[in-house]
């Protein structure tokens, strides 16, 4: 079995809200998983548990069989990159300086970026097509550019697993499709992806699995076809199936519609 990250019997609660009771799931090394669920169902929390920034109350999150609790955050960050939803940078750092921060888990106390570090940064910029943005100021980028640059920082960490928190948020349809293209490209490079997604229509294009979170229920795991069924979506998202999202048409039509 080739499991990159495993949630084993994970329990996690916030002071007044229990989110996960006994979460069991695993991310295979080449998976591309969309994490869906209604607001407040714990998508971001699950990503933070996967990144080691939150620790489960019970149970274990394991990276290649090793408990994340036993690893240093530096070690985790060399295998898992979390791309947060909102990033606010104090001071006008350029895109290149921003992406270079992805090398933080590799740097020693003294000394700057090594040639290997620079190569990783260049490679991350090439994959995300952000070379042309390198001397722009991060805070002045548009939403779509910002998203690509954030992903580039994650890729500079040379991770085996990339965690994306709502990567499609505030993007227009053109930028969304651009990002879907990027996710497909990353899949071809063998990087596993777990992305929380609001827009269910875009999932089938790029993702091989869907995890559906619902408050107080077991995590539903399956292929997009299996999980994104009208009645299930209707139940989990509490919306009438007939007025649900448009993804419920036959798959062949949809991919034609979306392909550009």
């Amino acid at each position: 079995m080739n499991s990159l990250l495993t949630f084993a019997d994970v329990e996690f609660s916030y002071p007044h809200r229990r989110l996960f009771h006994a979460l069991d799931a695993e991310i295979p090394a080449d998976a591309c998983i969309a994490l869906v669920g209604p607001n407040g169902s714990g998508k971001t929390t699950l990503l933070r548990l996967a990144a080691g920034s939150l620790r489960p109350a019970r149970g274990d999150v394991r990276l290649r069989g090793e408990s994340i609790a036993s690893l240093s955050q530096r070690a985790i960050a060399r295998s898992i990159a979390l791309v947060p939803q909102n990033v606010e940078v104090s001071f006008p750092f350029t895109v290149q300086q921003f992406i270079e921060q992805g090398r933080t888990p590799y740097l020693k106390l003294f000394g700057g970026l090594s040639p290997a570090d620079r190569h990783a940064v260049e490679h991350a910029m090439a994959l995300t097509d952000t070379h042309s943005l390198r001397s722009r100021v991060f805070n002045e980028l548009s939403g779509g550019e910002r998203q690509r640059v954030k992903i580039a920082l994650g890729l500079a960490q040379q991770p085996a697993l990339l965690l994306l928190d709502e990567p499609m948020q505030h993007l227009d349809i053109g930028r969304q499709l651009e990002l879907i293209g990027l996710i497909k490209r990353l899949r071809r490079h063998g990087i596993a992806i777990l992305a929380s997604m609001h827009d269910l229509t875009l999932i089938e294009e790029a993702f091989s699995f869907v995890w559906m979170l619902a408050p107080g229920q077991e995590l539903v795991i399956g292929s997009p076809h299996e999980v994104l069924r009208p009645e299930l979506i209707g139940r989990v998202f509490d919306c009438p199936p007939q007025r649900g999202p448009m993804l419920l048409k036959p798959a062949a039509n949809r991919s034609e519609r979306i392909r550009v």
Binding site: S53, I76, Q101, P105, Q157
Partner: peptide
Amino acid sequence: NTLALGEEYAAHLGL
């Protein structure tokens, strides 16, 4: 420099 990304992000990167 890393801290400029925000505390949570910096902590994730191993700071």
